[in-house]
Design a protein around this nucleic acid. Structure first.
Lengths: 336, 336
DNA sequence: AACAACGTTTCAAACGTTTGAAATAATTGC
DNA sequence: GCAATTATTTCAAACGTTTGAAACGTTGTT
């Protein structure tokens, strides 16, 4: 424990030169004599000089920090997307601060405020499912800090930058896949209606049916959320319908697993023949005895990477802040 | 986009008062006139004044930021532990920066450096499995920044603060549980030897055997890592041993799942009777057809919470930096 | 000997806060 | 009505950097 913090001033004192010489030497200014640079750099290393980022941020009026707000880290989609962001960000000299909203608007507001105070250079955000009001996020753009919404975003709002999984295409492809395997009665298990892409997924399903001249039946559609009880209720509804489904498209894998588990537990007649597909491509599928026939891989790393790429362009003003972009990242059907 | 950043100075100009009055008004100093406070606070709200954290950090010589370095976010143990840290930290006015090492020493060093520059007030770290050298982490203590190692830590080093899952007790309990269920030939599948607690777990296993007068057989012990191939090799070894095991204790659940899957895939005779236990208590277990008979719940939230509690005490100098503590968090056996 | 020209170093202000001390204004006591 | 007291505001320095402008010292030219 050393009580004299090693600052430029301290180094300057030791070396009997001015603070600016030390600073410039460490930053490799061409006007500084080579021998001086050596001396300074050696001394800095010896004394473990570590520049104070707060001071630099203050001076430079930027932080080289990217903020990320997301619902939670227990969802593998998000942790995988972080990897995409982090890799590209650090390669470009930026660090990342992650903040979880736990799908709670108040926490999201707190996170946003914290990141705003930290003067992040840009923000990537997947909004909570309860976010209907955007003052706390609009604040960033007002201060000239670009914001990229990814995955979960305010669907009605065109005036923001978005990077989205092409969830329509993913769901279309999954439905198409099931149709090609001979299914005609394909049930659709949707997610919370507050999450905007829920509708896109539904549309993918609908359109695939339409394009194959399969009549749509409202009986074959139900919605749930992340609560297991609700999923069971939805499944009971779907599989007691008149048109008994032979296949199922679900908006998220863990929920699909709940569905499969339930059908199996009640010895649903014809269970073995039912074919399922869900979003996610969870690594655990390999351990299931009755795995989904395929998964919709959402490529979260790519979503994250596209988000940070766009954000960096906005930060560098290569793209105008007002020139709102929408980037779609295609899904890929993985057959198991 | 507004080009005049709203600073104290800017507010002071608008209100025709000094910067210090504005600052004190916003910080609710008792010497400031109530009416003045109102005026200032209103104006601040109206213009969306957001204090610059870098400036405050610089002035206060602390950041109210806690750094966390951990191997990766794909392991649910770590994401759950973060929840424990975050909750307690934010309740005490601290923010958290998470940095992944991806089990790579170089990345860990980079993370440490980044956090050091950011002048975190304290560090919580689960070292990478390749970390044998600790300069980058010792640096913090040298600068008076307390460090708490959690879960993965330098086992040989007593001179550091540690918060650990009581992995010995967990493994003992699991083994005891299997013994009580009548098993005598219990195999043990250990993890990477570089991870320090691997040995504690093994000792838990051994001691439970000993306390029940069950002879230990080296044939019943094998080691693997997170690579599936190696797990299969280990399992082949264990289950082709002379003493055919009837139960298995594994050091981590996903690996246990690989083992179960393999035994099932080869139609291992007596597979249905084999009882397994592993560390983790993965939420996913509920979907398995041949689930482990029990799980060792490591209580990661509690580990995280204990780590941040200790760290805050160190930060507040309620505990002397040199007075090295070791906190153990018990595991809990969850029978499925 | 004078001075231009260069290589190198230093000065000084700025970034946005906080805070004890000093200054000023308002109030009270007599 | 004036000093003493109290309430309120302002001054000024500090936190650790960066950086353009100014200053310095050394050479080389004439």
């Amino acid at each position: 424990m050393q009580n004299t913090p090693v600052t430029l001033k301290f180094l300057a004192g030791k070396l009997k030169m001015s603070v600016s010489t030390v600073s410039k030497a460490l930053n490799n200014y061409p006007t500084i004599n080579e021998f001086t640079k050596k001396r300074v750099q050696e001394m800095a290393r010896e004394l473990n000089f570590t520049p104070n980022k707060s001071a630099i941020n203050l001076k430079e009026r930027r932080s080289r920090i990217i903020g990320i707000i997301l619902p939670n880290l227990s969802d593998h989609f998000f942790t995988r997307s972080i990897d995409g962001v982090e890799q590209f960000a650090t390669a470009h000299g930026y660090n990342v601060i992650i903040s979880q909203s736990h799908d709670d608007l108040q926490k999201e507001i707190q996170s946003a405020d914290m990141l705003l105070r930290s003067r992040v250079d840009g923000l990537i955000v997947a909004i909570s499912k309860h976010t209907q009001q955007f003052d706390h996020l609009n604040q960033f753009e007002k201060m000239g800090v670009p914001v990229v919404y990814y995955t979960r975003n305010p669907s009605f709002n065109l005036n923001c930058h978005k990077v989205l999984g092409n969830t329509f295409q993913g769901c279309y492809q999954a439905t198409q896949f099931l149709i090609e395997r001979g299914h005609r009665k394909i049930a659709y298990l949707g997610g919370p209606k507050m999450i905007n892409f829920t509708h896109d997924r539904f549309n993918g399903y609908i359109n695939a049916l339409k394009d194959n001249q399969i009549p749509f039946s409202a009986e074959l559609v139900a919605y749930t959320d992340f609560d297991q009880e609700n999923t069971i209720t939805a499944i009971q509804h779907l599989f007691s319908a008149e048109k008994i489904p032979t296949a199922l498209v679900a908006f998220k894998e863990p929920i699909l697993f709940d569905a499969i588990k339930y059908l199996k537990s009640i010895n649903y007649p014809g269970f073995a023949k039912i074919e399922c597909v869900g979003f996610g491509n969870n690594a655990f599928i390999t351990y299931l005895d009755n795995p989904p026939v395929a998964s919709i891989e959402e490529n979260p790393e790519s979503v994250g990477e596209n988000a940070i790429k766009l954000l960096l362009q906005l930060i560098n003003r290569e793209i105008d802040l007002q020139d709102y972009k929408k980037v779609m990242v295609d899904c890929r059907l993985v057959v198991h």
